[in-house]
């Protein structure tokens, strides 16, 4: 449980962090809350040469009402998203999901930017951001760019972020309609075996946790609903085209089954809540 040796630098600004990152992007990692990276380093599954700690960079922890969307600073801790009045009022799904991540210790240290940038398909927040049609704001040596959540998650622990870039803001569209989050696990602190984030607002967007190499949308369900199918019928198509993992917590077959049950429950709940 002792990581391989590394050099530690504490960044005072985004510019400084990006400068250090650009020196040797492939063996440099950004450290925020440390709740994804440090376990990997302690197991020596990750052995970065340089850690750039952005945890104290000022001005990146906020939840703001930005008109048609809510803007969340990348360094905002899960707990701060969970209790944010702005998030609760305009994107209650995001606030709720932030309160479901890990356990209280994790939620007080982990950051939304860290969770999204890690790109773990078993994490809850990527699914919430996908269901909310989020936009990821990325800064780097080539300037600032914005990537839609649908294009951001590329593969297992792989995102649209280049090694010399940094995620600085997460924007999610205000979602005044119905929503639901179904997280299925064996212990409260665990990653979801399968999770479902649903937003029902005229149409429906349904994103799934741990049903593939990335967080994914339940396209089969969304298409069925758009075509006028009932909830149960649409939910039955949730795993369509997906290749969920098999691991100690559940086989792929079981995950496909869970997806149908949990999507149905999520849609029923979201609809009942005003979707």
């Amino acid at each position: 449980m002792i990581p391989a040796s590394f050099e530690y630098r504490r960044a005072g600004s985004v510019e400084q962090a990006l400068g250090w990152l650009s020196e040797d992007p492939d063996s440099t990692k950004l450290l925020a809350g440390g709740h994804s990276l440090l376990p990997l380093m302690k197991l020596r599954l990750a052995t970065p040469g340089v850690l750039v700690d952005v945890g104290r960079v000022p001005g990146l922890s906020y939840v703001r009402d930005a008109g048609d969307h809510v803007a969340v600073g990348a360094l905002t801790r899960h707990r701060d998203v969970e209790i944010s009045d702005v998030a609760r009022a305009h994107v209650p799904l995001l606030a709720h999901v932030a309160g479901q991540v890990g356990d209280p210790q994790v939620r007080h240290r982990g950051t939304i930017g860290g969770s999204i940038a890690h790109g773990d398909p078993a994490s809850d927040l990527p699914a919430a951001v996908l269901a909310l049609d989020g936009v990821l704001v990325i800064d780097g040596p080539r300037g600032r760019r914005e990537v839609g959540a649908g294009d951001f998650f590329r593969g297992f622990l792989e995102t649209a972020l280049a090694p010399d870039e940094m995620l600085t803001e997460i924007r999610v569209r205000k979602a005044p309609g119905g929503w639901a989050f179904q997280k299925f696990n064996r212990r409260a602190q665990d990653w979801a075996i399968v999770g479902v984030a649903a937003v029902v607002n005229g149409g429906a967007r349904v994103a799934l946790v741990n049903m593939g190499a990335t967080t994914v949308r339940a396209r089969g369900t969304e298409e069925a609903l758009a075509a006028g199918a009932g909830i149960a019928e649409a939910a039955a198509r949730a795993p369509e085209g997906l290749e969920p993992p098999s691991d100690l917590q559940g086989s792929a077959e079981y995950r496909r089954h869970l997806a149908t049950v949990l999507v149905r429950r999520a849609l029923e709940e979201a609809t009942a809540a005003g979707g």
């Binding site: 356990d103 064996r186 212990r187 409260a188 602190q189 665990d190 100690l248």
Partner: peptide, 10 residues
Amino acid sequence: TDYLVPAASE
């Protein structure tokens, strides 16, 4: 993560 010791929440 893989060896599930239950906590008070369970």
